[in-house]
Structures are given as structure tokens and as C-alpha cells.
Simulated scan of single mutants.
Amino acid sequence: MDERERPRLFGNRWADAVGPGGEPDRDRCDCLDRRGGSNKAEVAFHPDRQDTSAPGWLHLLQLVDEAAADGREVFKPLVELSPAERRQIVTLPAGIAGLTEVRQLVLYGSNLVRIPPEIGAMTNLAEFSPYTSRRLHWLPYEITRCRKLRDSTVSTRALYGNFRYRPPFPVLRTVDDDWERTSVDPGRWGGGAVHACSVCAGPVPDRELRRRWISLAVATDVLPLLVNACSEDCLDALPAPAEGYASAPHLGGPGTVSTDIR
């Protein structure tokens, strides 16, 4: 065969990022369904609550503790979970704050719907790869504290406000009589309890929580970030959004992402 006719072979970058197969390891997501050629007019947060008694969660806690103890630089926890266990994981434990030596976090093909703000404590994180985690539509603003983060591999078509389809953002609720700082409904508020300001890391006084969406370039992708701020000053301290996205932090809802699209 002529050398020019030989088929090109490409290595599988994720060959060692996939755990054992078998039964389904994630749930279907139609949040940003584009069948029919158009986006949904409104979207909502995934309401999934993490079952902290599930075998997969307990196994993950063990893996996080082991990684923190041995100071490893590469953390691929899902590889060590069974398909059933992977499906039980919809967020990561707050204990990831202890993974200060981890440089590469691989969450390929996860069933995650949210990442906790404690990711901001992973100060040596340089590569973040939740690729094909198609239920993961947004990230916490705290990821911007990972100053060494230079490389990301995210399924951008699954993100709110992504540059390809411009799906809308969920409308952010304001603090009202339903607000309970330590018992937050993820389907209404997007995440769990709010312990600190996303911007200054200080406490958030009762009834003073201010929430905004902002699209920022993080590593190699523009990501939709959720801000939980303690004051107007902290909102004013937010950086300028990425070019071509909404020009200011916003509350979400239909029409927001069309602002400033070029």
C-alpha cells in the first residue's frame, strides 16, 4: 500500500478515563434538547439531590480521602467506580478542597449535574476534564480561584448560553421567605447550602445573598458560572464577561444570552 493511502490512526485520549462497562452509568438529559431545530424557551436546574448513603457516594468519599492523603497529582475517581456507582454521583464531595496537589481532574462521562464551590481550593489544578458529562450545564464561580488552570475539556454544547446554540439560563431566584441557607432545594437554587461569598470568600449575611450568571473564559473554554455574592460591592468586582456573551452579570431567563451576540 502506498504510504499516502495508509489510514491515519488516532490515539484515544480517554482510553484510561473510562471505568468498567455494563449497565447504564448515567441518566438521560433533555434540558437543552434541540430536536426540531430550536432551543427550549426556558430551562431549569436539575433537581437531583445527592444520596449520601449510596454505595457510589461512600466509595467516592474513600477515593477522595486516599487522594488527599497520598498527594497524587492525577485524580480519575470514576475509573474506580462501577457503572451503578457512577450513576449515583450527581455532585462531588466538599472534601475535594483537600486535593491541593491534584493537577489533573478527570471526570469523563460522569452523571454530574453540579460541581461544588470547594473546587476553588484545588490550588494546583491545571487541567479540568469533565468531557461528555452532558448533564453538567454550569460551574461555580469559585473555579476562577484555580489560578493554575490552563486546560479544560468540557462538552460545551451542554452548557447554558453556549456559543453554538445559545440555550437560555435558568432564572435565578431572589432570597425570599423560602430561603434556608443550610437546606437549599437544588431544583430551585441550583446547588446546596451557601456557606461563603463566591467573590470575596467572606460570610453571606442572612437575606443579603445576591446571585448572578456570568460567562467567562476559564482555561480553554467559556463557561457559564454561578455567582453567590454577599454584597453589591462584590458584584461590582466581577470581571467583564467574555466577548460575544451577555455584557454584564445577569439573572438568566429567556432572551438574556442574545444580548451582545456578534
Rank of each mutant, 00 (worst) to 15 (best):
A67I: 08
A69R: 14
Y245G: 01
A237E: 12
A17F: 13
S183K: 12
T100W: 03
M1V: 15
T144L: 12
F163D: 07
L136C: 11
L60M: 11
F10K: 09
E142V: 01
Y245F: 15
S215H: 15
T153H: 15
H137C: 13
C31G: 02
V199F: 02
P168I: 02
Q104V: 15
A67E: 10
Q62M: 13
S231T: 04
Y131A: 08
D27M: 10
K76S: 06
V204P: 01
E118V: 02
E73I: 08
W213V: 00
N39W: 08
T100A: 09
Y245T: 15
V64L: 01
P249H: 04
R173H: 02
W138M: 13
T259H: 09
P83T: 09
A41K: 15
L78G: 00
E243V: 14
Y245D: 01
G98T: 03
D236H: 13
R13M: 13
R188T: 05
D27S: 13
A201C: 10
C234S: 11
G21T: 13
P224V: 03
L105P: 04
I96Y: 04
S110Q: 08
P205K: 04
N162C: 13
R181A: 15
D16G: 13
F163E: 11
L159T: 01
F169H: 08
S183N: 14
C230L: 10
L63F: 07
P241M: 03
H46C: 05
G71L: 11
S231W: 09
L223S: 03
D236P: 00
N39D: 05
H59P: 01
L105Q: 02
A44T: 07
G255Y: 07
N111F: 02
V222N: 03
R13F: 14
P47C: 07
R262H: 09
L225V: 07
W189G: 00
V43M: 10
A15D: 08
W179Q: 08
R34H: 11
P205N: 05
A17G: 05
G190C: 09
R210C: 00
A54P: 01
P140R: 03
R135I: 06
R28K: 12
L99R: 02
D2K: 14
H59K: 15
V184G: 00
Y165G: 01
S53F: 05
V90Y: 03
Y160Q: 04
P203M: 03
V18A: 10
E3Q: 10
D221A: 13
E73Y: 09
A126F: 02
K40Q: 14
F45Y: 05
M1N: 09
L112V: 06
L209I: 00
A67H: 04
V218H: 00
R34V: 07
L32M: 11
T156E: 15
L149P: 05
T174F: 01
T259C: 06
D33C: 08
L209S: 01
S183V: 12
A229R: 08
